[in-house]
Design a protein around this nucleic acid. Structure first.
Length: 806
RNA sequence: GCCCAGGUGGUGAAAUUGGUAAACACGCUAGGUUCAGGACCUAGUGCCCAUGAGGGCUUGCGGGUUCGAAUCCCGCCCUGGGCACCA
């Protein structure tokens, strides 16, 4: 291990200084331009901070410190997303209240984060479990409720009969509970729902207005899952009932040879003839037993039963059977389809299995081998014959609309959001059920509705949360109405607090409103948001949804909360595997800070590779960075701890001017583009070069510390201070580069013969082409390769290459 | 199965976006310093042939476009992430 510069001492010194002087306090309404740089706030788990957290936090910290130096008023806050399952499960095992665990974990996280020297404005710290915070989470819920976006519904949840509790998706693997391995079934239960589907179109459209990674946008698009098509209404023979289907392929309606309804479809009860009722009921029961997984993944073959009822195809009056099958889902479209086996592979498989008719209506495929889903010319389709798919779609939709048999329609895969959890450790719902069956939203003066303290964290056994056991809390007399009332025993999901935390940072101590509108207007939107890709869809979609509602209610000033999003990659263990306790490959940041210091850890995390990439940890690579920082230290400080005497007030020569200007240029651009790894490579080049100088110009050595400061704030601040500077580096202006010295005038040109490298020469970049060619031809090696062959073509790219074609 | 991202030395990676592939670092080798180890300093280090000068090959694989391809196009293979009968 390298010789150690006194990092411990100086890191503590400067962290104390920044804290005491509130160096990084964000100023509301400062006349400087604002910059809001946000981290995804952590869930403070018991295992402490992960080196993966620190990657994103270091990246945003470099940006924040850089922007400070560029003269911005920077908002760079941190807080705790502290509701959620792990603390509650821990309480189940140990009986320790989640509030206690949470407090302890937060204290630990905070200690670890502070040890990194991040430039957070700690006066804006928030905690989602603080009643002063969740008062406003509840308040926002009420606004959503009043906007008509909240309702109750019976939806299937993961119910584990053995554990007598509802499980989250991540607690269920392969249809079994993670704890105990008991079977889990889908059971409908009353839940609070949020109508995110009402915003599907806006959420989709506005993706085009924000700077997110294309892959994240694509995931969100797929999740929203817009498809365009038509509703078509089929009459059920012998009844007054109709069956409405959604299809993206209305052009194939002449090929519809049967219908399928989902087992849960309400129409079934009305249309199934007496003699078939028993059989259908049996099939419905079986389908209800199956989880989504069993209906999809595990089912290799489609199953279904004919209902005995028939529908009439509206376009050709053909009588077609109605089947029930669980490959049709009640939750998408209308829960019923027209089956066109010739042109839909799923329908084709089903038709083959049950011997149903297959009629080809689009030419170009071989329907004996499988469905033809692509384009072609319409056949067997009366007035659509001869058209291609696209034209046929248009024509049939107009026809359906004219005859009142259907209409153009859009469907989304996106479903409404289940907003209840049958859990203790979450925000209580700010509403009560009155004895007359009505729901009363709490008034603002009744907020927050605090989570009552409990001692036993076991679930109630009925699928309700542990809150159901607190009888005196659940049943009470409502003081406002005098009526008997009940509190909701469900709590909100962890997403609730994280859906708006970036707004609370703007005005964290306001107890009159969630945030001041003027402050919101000043600070929003978030200019840069950095976090893990695991939140690609859910958190980012939910937060965008709430923000759009708040925008429509006039509570925020921008339609989107986050202007630019960057995902950091995962840091793997030294073995290239995901870090985990069981693998024993976890790197503990405390140990790194203890042995090498925070500046080394910060710099190494940035040097590992591009921010967005997954990459393995390497202890020797990290030690390389430590060596580098020691070299930097030794460049300024001698063995006796004194400033070195070879740093002098001299004018840098041309070569050193070029070196420092190129370094400013490269580092500035790389920070702007979040390419921290190559900025650090440039630092190393600078240090390698300047080390060779006997006398080092003071101005250049000072400029270098400015550049290094956002990356390694402690060592740079200390060296700056030891050079005799009074003002602190953190707020001093970022250096500018001089274009004249960035540009190379004398360049090395590669000479190719037939595209192969054969030599090189040095030349003034602006020399005429003839001179380039002349120099190229004068090279011995080049001569050898063109000897005796006529030159057919000479390609000269100034500053780059000369290529001679023979 | 579908969608997205990505495959470059022994390792992490870089390449001004079509112009000298491998910058910077890790590791390794040799030398210096040292009682020794560590640390530090210097030099070398893509692969193959050659004593050398030099030559050949090389960015997952196979084609193509171009004076010139890691970069653009077509097909295939592999890895990671996401989705799951969405009508």
């Amino acid at each position: 291990m390298a010789k150690k510069y006194p990092f411990k001492e100086i890191e503590k010194k400067w962290q104390d200084y920044w804290e005491k002087n509130k160096t990084f306090k964000a100023i509301d309404f400062s006349p400087k331009p604002k910059f809001y740089v946000l981290d995804m706030f952590p869930y403070p788990s018991g295992s402490g901070l992960h080196v993966g957290h620190l990657e994103g936090y270091t990246a945003t910290d470099i940006i924040a410190r850089y922007k400070w130096k560029k003269g911005y008023n920077v908002l760079h806050p941190m807080g705790w997303d502290a509701f959620g399952l792990p603390a509650e499960n821990y309480a189940l095992q140990t009986g320790i209240h989640p509030r206690i665990t949470t407090q302890k974990n937060i204290a630990n996280f905070k200690r670890q984060i502070k040890a990194m020297g991040f430039a957070y404005d700690w006066d804006r710290e928030i905690n989602t479990t603080d009643p002063k915070y969740y008062k406003w989470t509840q308040w926002i819920f009420i606004q959503l409720y009043k906007a008509g976006l909240v309702y109750q519904d019976e939806v299937p949840v993961n119910w584990c009969p053995a554990l007598k509790t509802v499980l989250a998706n991540e607690e269920v693997v392969d249809g079994k509970s993670v704890r105990g391995g008991h079977p889990v079934i889908r059971k409908p239960m009353r839940q609070w729902m949020m109508k995110i589907t009402a915003y599907a179109e806006k959420l989709l459209e506005d993706l085009d207005t924000i700077d997110f990674p294309e892959s994240i946008k694509e995931m969100q698009r797929n999740w929203i899952g817009k498809s365009e098509g038509a509703y078509i209404i089929f009459r059920v023979e012998g009844t007054n009932e109709t069956l409405k289907v959604f299809t993206t392929r209305p052009d194939t309606v002449f090929g519809a040879t049967y219908m399928v309804v989902a087992p849960e479809h309400p129409l079934l009860e009305k249309i199934v003839p007496e003699d078939r009722k028993k059989e259908i009921e049996e099939y419905r029961k079986q389908a209800a037993m199956k989880s989504d997984l069993a209906r999809t993944d595990l089912a290799k073959e489609k199953t279904g039963v004919a209902t005995g009822a028939y529908a009439i195809n509206p376009v050709n009056k053909k009588r077609i059977p109605i089947w029930v099958a669980d490959y049709v889902l009640m939750t998408y479209g209308t829960g019923a389809i027209m089956a066109v086996p010739a042109h839909d592979q799923r329908d084709w498989e089903f038709a083959k299995k049950y011997g149903l008719e297959i009629i080809e209506v689009i030419s170009g495929g071989d329907i004996s081998k499988g469905a033809h889903e692509g384009d072609g010319i319409l056949i067997n389709s009366d007035f659509l014959n001869g058209l291609n798919v696209e034209k046929a779609k248009e024509k049939i939709i107009s026809w359906l609309e004219e005859h009142n048999l259907g209409e153009r329609a859009v469907q989304y895969k996106l479903r409404d959001w289940v907003f209840s959890r049958q859990r203790y450790w979450g925000e209580p719902f700010p509403l009560i059920f009155l004895e007359d069956g009505t729901v009363r939203l709490l008034d603002e003066d009744e907020l927050p509705l605090k989570l009552p303290d409990i001692e036993k964290f076991e679930p109630s056994g009925t699928g309700e949360s542990p809150l159901a056991n607190v009888k005196e809390w659940v049943d009470f007399i409502d003081p406002k109405t005098g009526k008997r009332a009940k509190h909701e025993t469900h709590t909100m999901p962890q997403w609730a607090g994280s859906c708006w935390y970036y707004l609370r940072y703007i005005d964290p101590h306001n107890d009159k409103e969630p945030w001041d509108k003027k402050k919101e207007k000043y600070w929003m939107p978030v200019d840069l948001y950095v976090g893990g890709a695991e939140h690609a869809v859910l958190h980012l979609l939910y937060a965008r949804f709430w923000h759009k509602v708040l925008y429509d209610l006039g509570l925020v000033s921008t339609p989107e909360p986050f202007m630019k999003l960057v995902n950091q990659g995962i840091i793997l263990g030294e073995d290239g595997e995901k870090m985990s306790k069981s693998r024993g490959n976890v790197i503990n940041p405390d140990e790194i800070v203890e042995n090498y210091g925070a500046d080394t850890l910060r710099m190494y995390e940035m040097f590992m590779g591009p921010l967005e990439k997954s990459k393995p940890w390497s202890t020797s690579g990290m030690e390389g960075i430590f060596r580098f920082l020691n070299r930097v230290w030794n460049l300024y400080i001698d063995d006796k701890g004194k400033s070195r005497e070879d740093i002098q007030d001299i004018e840098p020569d041309h070569r050193i001017k070029k070196l420092i200007n190129k370094t400013i240029y490269k580092v500035t651009n790389d920070i702007e583009n979040l390419k921290f790894n190559t900025a650090i490579a440039q630092f190393m080049i600078f240090v390698n070069e300047i080390s060779k100088e006997k006398i080092k110009p003071r101005s250049v050595m000072e400029t270098f510390l400015h550049l290094l400061n956002p990356f390694a704030p402690h060592i740079s601040e200390e060296l700056w201070n030891r050079m005799g500077n009074k003002e602190i580096l953190a707020h001093l202006e970022w250096p500018e580069y001089d274009e004249e010295y960035v540009r190379d005038d004398l360049v090395v040109i590669a000479v190719q013969v037939n595209g192969k490298l054969r030599g090189q020469f040095e030349i003034d970049i602006d020399a005429p082409e003839e001179e380039y060619v002349e120099k190229a031809l004068s090279l011995e090696r080049v001569k050898n390769h063109i000897r005796g062959k006529p030159i057919r073509k000479k390609i000269v790219v100034k500053g780059k290459v000369v290529n001679l074609v023979v």
